[in-house]
Design a protein around this nucleic acid. Structure first.
Length: 229
DNA sequence: GACCAGGCACATC
DNA sequence: GATGTGCATGGT
């Protein structure tokens, strides 16, 4: 672990927290809702996911048992606003099968399993990859697992902390070995990275006035766009 | 109308 | 193992 990287990880959190304050993630009323949301939000704006979730709520379907009984064709209609609705219906279906066959639909039982086992099992569910599995572990089960998303990767790349070809596990290790294993800290940090990413780190360069600007290495200062906000 | 969003699986080389 | 592609709605 390079010392400069640890400094960046440490300092960035403070800057982001001072700028944006607590993010109160994950916005949901239940553990199950977090898990459903984690699948629905794959490559999708959260506002679209909210529409899908409120559809399910309004129909009284947001529980492991009721959703399990719902035919996949109807499920896909309810979640339509979230986009990729056919594929996400299949993914939710696969998760619900896992929940029922492995845990009898009992989330309280699932909560007692250890983190490594849960992660391994979640990754075997078709449609659940590393980010979705880790979102469930952190935000639904309060486990000290750092979630790496597209914004996290982009921000680290633009600051020269990791290379263009950085793998998920490399970035995750970077955070997990630099920070105390505190779920609340990981929770807040990831949410803050999304907040700054939405404002300043889109696919096209948009770095000016970014709260992390002071952490940019000098050699990268020239690449900062001044046309953004 | 173009671009983007809190990924993942699968085909192909 | 790396790279490309399909999946789709809704906001800016």
């Amino acid at each position: 672990m390079k010392k400069g990287n640890r400094y960046f990880i440490d300092r960035a959190f403070k800057l982001l927290y001072n700028t944006y304050g607590p993010q109160y993630w994950w916005p949901a009323d239940s553990t199950f809702e977090v898990m459903v949301g984690a699948i629905l939000t794959q490559n999708t704006n959260w506002t679209n996911v909210e529409k899908a979730i409120s559809n399910l709520k309004a129909a009284g379907l947001l529980s492991p048992h009721t959703l399990y009984k719902l035919p996949i064709e109807r499920l896909s209609e309810f979640i339509r606003p979230a986009g990729y609705y056919n594929i996400k219906a299949e993914r939710l279906r696969a998760f619900l099968e896992y929940l029922h066959h492995r845990w009898c639909g009992d989330i309280e039982r699932m909560k007692k399993e250890d983190t490594e086992t849960l992660r391994k099992e979640l990754l075997q569910v078709k449609g659940i990859g590393p980010e979705t599995a880790d979102s469930i572990l952190l935000y639904a089960f309060n486990r000290p697992v750092f979630v790496v998303d597209a914004y996290t990767k982009r921000i680290l790349q633009r600051h020269g902390i990791v290379g263009e070809d950085a793998k998920y596990s490399e970035i995750q290790d970077l955070f997990q070995s630099s920070l105390p294993r505190d779920p609340q800290l990981f929770n807040e940090y990831h949410a803050l990275l999304v907040a700054v990413g939405k404002n300043h780190c889109k696919r096209k360069p948009l770095c000016s006035r970014c709260p992390l600007g002071s952490l940019l290495p000098e050699k990268l200062q020239n690449s900062v766009s001044t046309t953004g906000r």
